[in-house]
């Protein structure tokens, strides 16, 4: 089968994305570095110690952004899943491949930093309460997605299966969010809610906010970079395949 002009048409959208990524990337990267430097220094050295936890409260400034990013990246995977299943958006499948490992890293870091906080504070590395368990489930959903999307020789089949997994797994997100309200858990309830005043001193809230923005910008920059690279790689592959076909045609002629 010869590549048709249709193929170029398919790349119109990724082309647009590449232009967008080129404009946004310097801003995302610069913003991430500035916010993270400020946030980490503030969180580690300037923010006050908690009256009970002492300095161990500083783990929160990396733990909470990781939890937020693990959930948001999974939401991103689910949106990619809908775009892929319903609209067959070519960019969505590439994005799902690239978002998965980043989200899995965030989920793993959330679990590890939480464990590092729990050992000195609760007195245990791990308990099987609803919040911790549902977060672990999210990590395994990421691992399943990463494996599934690469499991088939024919990429389209793996992408379809992974999109379905991403959509089914989205049910875990509200469970994580509300687990601390619905059930008795060892994990504390959320300090920051949409409805009430935060039960946290402003002197701790500011570094937390800045760290969260910094890590979010950083993850956005990483995903944009990975996706741009993936588009370039797939274009190079397409050109190689086409040149091989051309050669075969010219040999046949």
């Amino acid at each position: 089968m010869r590549p048709t002009p249709n193929l170029l048409h398919r790349y119109a959208n990724p082309g647009q994305f590449l232009r967008l990524a080129r404009t946004l990337l310097p801003w995302l990267t610069g913003g991430a570095i500035v916010f993270l430097v400020v946030g980490v220094i503030w969180g580690l050295f300037i923010a006050p110690a908690d009256w009970q936890q002492g300095d161990t409260v500083r783990i929160m400034y990396v733990h909470v952004p990781m939890a937020w990013l693990a959930s948001s990246c999974y939401l991103g995977l689910a949106i990619c899943g809908v775009l892929s299943l319903v609209w067959r958006h070519p960019l969505a499948d590439l994005a799902a491949i690239e978002i998965g490992p980043v989200g899995a890293c965030a989920a793993a870091l959330c679990l590890i930093t939480g464990s590092l906080w729990g050992e000195p504070m609760w007195g245990t590395w791990w308990v099987w309460d609803a919040r911790l368990t549902s977060m672990l489930v999210l990590f395994f959903l990421y691992l399943g997605h990463i494996a599934l999307i690469r499991a088939f020789d024919e990429p389209a089949r793996g992408q379809r299966a992974a999109a379905i997994l991403a959509l089914a797994g989205v049910i875990d997100l509200p469970i994580i969010k509300f687990s601390v309200q619905w059930w008795n858990t060892l994990h504390q309830p959320d300090s920051i809610t949409l409805t009430g005043a935060p039960t946290m001193s402003m002197m701790m809230l500011w570094p937390l906010l800045i760290c969260t923005i910094g890590f979010t910008l950083g993850v956005a920059a990483v995903i944009f970079t990975r996706l741009s690279a993936a588009i370039h790689e797939s274009r190079a592959r397409q050109m190689m395949a086409r040149s091989r076909l051309d050669r075969r045609d010219s040999q046949a002629a």
Partner: peptide, 18 residues
């Protein structure tokens, strides 16, 4: 056989608590 401390959602600087 085991006692775990449960932290609540309050994060307060030591000076404020004092």
């Amino acid at each position: 056989s085991e006692v775990l401390a449960k932290h609540d959602e309050t994060y307060m600087p030591k000076e404020v608590a004092d």
